Amino acid sequence: MEPPLTPQQLWDCALRLLSRRDHSRRELGQKLRQRQFDAELVEQALDKLEQQQWLADRRFAAVQVRQHIFRKHGPLRIRVELQRKGVDEADIEQALEEEAPDWFELALACYRARFAFDDRLDIKEKAKRMRYLQSRGFAFEHIRHALETPPE
């Protein structure tokens, strides 16, 4: 039988995880519990990390939004990813508002990076292109803009 994991081991593990990249509170908690640390100790450690500002969902959301925009992901996908990682709706909204990209131009850039302009698209090809932009998280109005904007 293995000896129980100590609070110091928990703290060291949490800091190691945070040194690699930012995590949301829920995400870090899940990773620590998966490593068989006591749930109560995990919560105490997460509280302490938040007090020391080493763990902040608001900062995590801002970083994630920037990364997703860089990868040309739309607002719907970003929102779903952050919700899945346990970030509050208010933090998601604030991060999206702070970045405030032009979603129409981002959808157009994403579209042009993937497809050549063709003003004679058949229904199947147009649907394929729309599904691609939908999967990237763009709303219908962004997709329509990308499909209908002629090249300069």
Rank of each mutant, 00 (worst) to 15 (best):
F104A: 03
A146C: 10
R112L: 07
D122Y: 11
I143G: 02
Y132M: 09
R129S: 05
R112F: 06
G137H: 08
A139T: 06
E99F: 07
D122F: 10
E98A: 14
D118V: 07
L108V: 02
F117L: 02
R144L: 15
F104P: 00
F117P: 01
L121M: 12
Y111M: 04
D102N: 14
Q134L: 12
I143S: 09
R120T: 12
H142C: 11
R136K: 14
R129I: 09
D118I: 05
G137E: 10
I123L: 14
C110K: 02
E99W: 03
L121R: 10
H142M: 06
Q134A: 08
D102E: 02
D102P: 02
D122V: 04
H145D: 07
R131A: 12
A146N: 08
P101T: 04
I143M: 02
A100W: 06
L96T: 02
K124V: 11
K124T: 11
F104M: 04
F117N: 03
E97W: 10
E98R: 11
A109Y: 01
R131Q: 14
Y111F: 15
A109F: 01
S135N: 15
R112D: 11
R120M: 10
L133R: 03
R136E: 10
L147M: 13
E97K: 12
E105R: 07
R131P: 00
R112E: 13
R114I: 04
E99G: 00
M130N: 11
E98N: 12
E97S: 09
R120V: 05
E125L: 11
D102G: 01
A113P: 00
Q134T: 11
F138P: 04
E105S: 08
E97H: 11
F140S: 14
C110I: 02
